[in-house]
Every structure is written in C-alpha cells, then in structure tokens.
Simulated scan of single mutants.
Amino acid sequence: MPRVPSPAARHVGEHIATARKERGLTQDDLASLTGIDSSNIRGYESGRAMVSVQTLVRIADALRLEPGALLRGIELGMFTAPERDGRRRAG
C-alpha cells in the first residue's frame, strides 16, 4: 500500500469511512468483503495511504457505490506535489 498522506487521501478515506458506517459495517467487515487487509482499510480511512484505482473499485463494489462517489469533491490541489527528482517534464 503506497503511503501517500495528502488532503486527497484524507478526503477519499473520509468518504470510505462514512459509507461503511452508513451500512453498519466495521472495518473488519469491509476487509472481509473486499479481500483487503483490515490494516490497509484503517490506513485508507485515516488518510495515511492513498488507495489505488483497483482498490478503490473493490471498496466501492463492496459498499455498493459507484467508484466516483468516493472521489466526489476531489480537486487537483489536494494532492501533494512530488519532490523534484531531476527528470525533465513535458510542457
């Protein structure tokens, strides 16, 4: 699980936690439904880690949501800018 704490990760995690609680599920329940380790679920919900697209789809499916519902309200500025690594960028 990539550890990418950012406002975006926190935002997505809040959506996951809210949807899970609305359905009366525990983090362990969601982990069982998705096949994702419960420690990863905790990391996503707390915003310590950003979900991959595949994981987002698995979680949305278990919560019976469209994946876009978990991304609602995300803006580009919420992502932490990567540090310069010396490579040239297009543009």
Rank of each mutant, 00 (worst) to 15 (best):
A9V: 00
Q54P: 00
E22R: 14
G35R: 00
A62G: 06
A31V: 05
N40S: 10
T18W: 04
L65F: 06
A31C: 08
T34W: 11
M78Y: 05
A49Q: 15
L30E: 11
I41H: 09
D61K: 15
D61I: 00
Q54N: 14
G24Y: 12
H11W: 00
Q27F: 10
S52A: 14
D29V: 12
A19Q: 12
R64F: 05
I59G: 09
I74M: 12
R10E: 11
P67K: 10
V12Y: 05
T55Y: 05
T26W: 04
D37R: 14
T34H: 09
M50H: 06
R10S: 02
L33R: 15
T80P: 00
V53F: 08
I59W: 05
L33E: 06
L56W: 07
T55W: 01
F79G: 00
L30M: 11
R72F: 15
L65V: 03
L56A: 12
E83D: 12
T26A: 09
G24H: 06
Q54H: 13
E66F: 11
D61R: 11
R10P: 00
S52T: 14
H15Y: 04
R20Q: 03
S52C: 07
Q27D: 13
S38A: 14
L71H: 11
R58S: 13
D61C: 01
L63S: 10
E83Q: 06
R48F: 05
R58D: 15
I74Q: 12
L65E: 09
E45P: 00
L63W: 03
D37W: 14
R23C: 07
M50T: 08
R10T: 03
R72E: 15
L70Q: 11
A49P: 00
V51Y: 08
A69W: 02
V12F: 03
M78H: 05
I74R: 02
G77E: 14
F79Y: 08
P67R: 11
D29K: 03
L63E: 03
S32V: 09
A69Y: 07
T80D: 11
E66K: 07
E22H: 10
R72W: 11
G68L: 07
R20T: 01
A81R: 15
G68K: 05
R23E: 07
P82M: 06
D37H: 10
K21W: 07
K21P: 00
